[in-house]
């Protein structure tokens, strides 16, 4: 049988390209233009500083304490907040998992995520402020006074705002992973003599680790990029001058887009490093389905 030339369409279809595949193109183009290109553009721009040297911006960043200290400031906020949110989310998710009114709790907790950091910041200024209900309650029980406890316009203001918007986020993600584990696995472990603590250690924890790693990453990246609450609830000139503030100021106050891009690149790189470390360590654990051997 002499081979008639295979039409292009047939060949393309064999590789998975046909009319339906083309539907992906508009979205692809949009993201290439508005996500990939700006990143590339930003990278190139960051390598063309005002002083004309190649890595000038990066040298500048890492030699100016006002700039490089923002990394430490950001980490000092993001790491403890993420750890606390995750440590609190796991036991709460295990409690809520078998609850009848689970939806009520999840709905309440989705409120701060939906309302967003700006509104939470405004509410916190009222509520945690020196004359707010929280400190009033504290002094009512003799636990502090407006002069001794300061919860806004400092580190703790930003910290609390990251807990208030971050904990629900971490919790809801954790809950979805916890509920993804087949209840029969726990029942099986129980019939085999495992007590609650042993069930958690031998069944849930190994199956949850991959999900918790992702939860940690997403929560961390959110906390790391804190911006509005660091300005509104913190001390943006000092203790809560996080890296996103530095980038914003470079771009929109000094109009040095080149330096701003460099800071954004550094910010992205740091997030990437943490995410890669966490995700790499996750591969040490079991990663298959957690629903029991047969879905």
């Amino acid at each position: 049988m002499s081979s008639a030339p295979i039409p292009f369409r047939t060949r393309a279809a064999a590789h998975g390209f046909d009319g339906v595949t083309l539907l992906v193109i508009p979205a692809l183009l949009l993201l290439a233009a508005l996500f990939l290109y700006p990143f590339g553009y930003g990278l190139v721009l960051s390598l063309r500083p005002k002083d004309g040297t190649w890595l000038g911006n990066y040298f500048h960043f890492f030699s100016d304490p006002f700039l490089y200290q923002t990394i430490a400031t950001t980490l000092a906020l993001a790491l403890p907040v993420t750890a606390i949110n995750l440590l609190a989310a796991v036991p709460v998710a295990f409690r809520v998992r078998r609850m009848q009114h689970q939806r009520l709790i999840t709905t309440i907790l989705v409120l701060p995520i939906t309302l967003g950091t700006v509104l939470v910041a405004e509410g916190m200024l009222n509520y945690f402020g020196p004359q707010g209900w929280f400190i009033r309650t504290l002094s009512l029980f003799g636990l502090g006074s407006p002069s001794s406890v300061k919860l806004v316009h400092n580190y703790w203001g930003v910290f609390l705002s990251l807990v208030i918007t971050g904990f629900p986020f971490t919790f809801l993600l954790t809950l979805s992973y916890v509920s993804g584990i087949d209840v029969a696995l726990e029942n099986a472990a129980a019939t085999l003599g495992a007590r609650a603590a042993a069930r958690f250690r031998t069944i849930f924890l190994p199956l949850l680790v991959p999900g918790l790693a992702i939860t940690f990453c997403l929560s961390f990246v959110q906390a790391y990029s804190v911006f509005p609450s660091a300005v509104l609830l913190g001390a943006p000139a000092g203790p809560t001058r996080v890296i996103s503030i530095a980038a914003y100021e470079a771009a929109f106050e000094q109009y040095d887009y080149s330096l701003a891009s460099a800071i954004a690149m550094i910010m992205g790189a740091f997030q990437l490093i943490v995410v890669v470390i966490v995700l790499m360590s996750r591969s040490l654990f079991y990663r298959g389905p957690a629903a029991g051997a047969k879905g």
């Binding site: 508005l34 990143f39 887009y257």
Partner: peptide
């Protein structure tokens, strides 16, 4: 905020 700055630029 990370990709927003280059995007805004």
């Amino acid at each position: 905020i990370t990709y927003g700055i280059p995007l805004a630029t």
